[in-house]
């Protein structure tokens, strides 16, 4: 997956560009751009995690912590210290990077399930801090009054404006990630995934490469958290709990783990399934959700992006 083809990117860009315009004209999906804002925020996170999991082969069950660090940095610094929201996003990212390096350095030496548990534990601990330090965070009830975003007097105060803001950030992250994949670091990552021993023999600094990717994904999650906070104007700890870390992994599995497109498709699909489509099933929603996930693992192990390939295979036969 070294070459990223241009055509799907063009299709994706046009789709994103036109979607609000189409949705406005169809009453039944009028509110979909609102869902797409959250899908975009999730997408930002899964792009980073797909790099970490799909390319570098490192599992993380604690990424909601970075999402929360960004959100709370924005929330606390804007409401209690009246800082500029954009500056807060930068400070949040810096904090997330620092935490990622401090936690990542010892954790990423761990293997497989041990790494999974370590990141899980890290996520839970950070969530407990969000919950317990009520003077800063507002405790379990959360904090409100977080201002919206504006730039040079232009305010992102409607759903459509925020939609474009979020998806522009996603596009930037997407292209940056592709550059990273195609860079020597990206090649080093794939080598690590294939075999750490071989990569090490080739002279790749394994632990440095892993920490770089971990920090990169943490920054994306932190920016996503800030965007969430400024859109919702409210945050509480349950948004950033372990369950959400697991949901991020589910999004990537739904879309497909081995390509960055999987992250995009997975997070958009997940947002629509969980915010809209599964509600049709009422009481049975949770069972249907589990069954859908089960079907994907059984019939589409490469995720939804593998579906067209599978269909093509069938047809050719």
């Amino acid at each position: 997956m070294l070459r990223i083809r241009k055509a799907p990117m063009g299709v994706g860009a046009i789709f994103i560009l036109l979607f609000p315009w189409v949705a406005e004209r169809l009453p039944a999906i009028e509110h979909y751009p609102d869902l797409m804002v959250f899908a975009g925020i999730y997408c930002l996170m899964t792009i980073g995690m797909s790099l970490l999991m799909g390319y570098a082969g490192q599992i993380s069950l604690g990424h909601a912590a970075f999402y929360g660090i960004g959100a709370y940095a924005s929330g606390i610094l804007t409401t209690q210290y009246n800082l500029n929201p954009w500056l807060c996003i930068l400070i949040g990212s810096a904090a997330a990077t620092a935490v990622a390096v401090v936690v990542g350095a010892p954790s990423l030496r761990l293997r497989g399930h041990y790494l999974a548990m370590a990141t899980l534990a890290f996520g839970i601990i950070i969530n407990i801090v969000f919950r317990e330090e009520a003077e800063w965070t507002g405790g379990p009830d959360g904090m409100g009054g977080i201002p919206g975003l504006d730039i040079f007097g232009y305010s992102f105060d409607s759903i459509h404006k925020y939609y474009y803001l979020v998806w522009i950030v996603v596009a930037i992250a997407f292209f940056f990630t592709i550059r990273l994949i195609q860079s020597p670091t990206g090649r080093a990552l794939r080598a690590i995934h294939a075999s750490e021993a071989a990569a090490s023999a080739m002279g790749i600094d394994i632990s440095r490469s892993k920490i770089v990717v971990f920090a990169f994904s943490a920054i994306l999650a932190s920016v996503a958290g800030s965007l969430y906070a400024h859109y919702m104007n409210f945050i509480n700890p349950s948004t950033f709990d372990t369950l959400f870390s697991i949901k991020l992994v589910i999004m990537i599995a739904l879309g497909g783990m081995h390509t960055i497109w999987g992250a995009v498709v997975g997070s958009v699909l997940f947002a629509f399934l969980s915010f809209e489509w599964l509600h049709q099933f009422g009481e049975y929603e949770i069972v249907v959700y589990g069954l859908v996930l089960m079907m994907v693992t059984i019939y589409l192990p490469e995720g939804l992006v593998g579906l067209p390939g599978r269909i093509a295979q069938r047809v050719r036969r």
């Binding site: 949770i286 069972v287 996930l293």
Partner: peptide, 13 residues
Amino acid sequence: IIATIAASIVIKG
């Protein structure tokens, strides 16, 4: 891992 999570959701539901 995802399969066991899916199963746990179905059982819980």
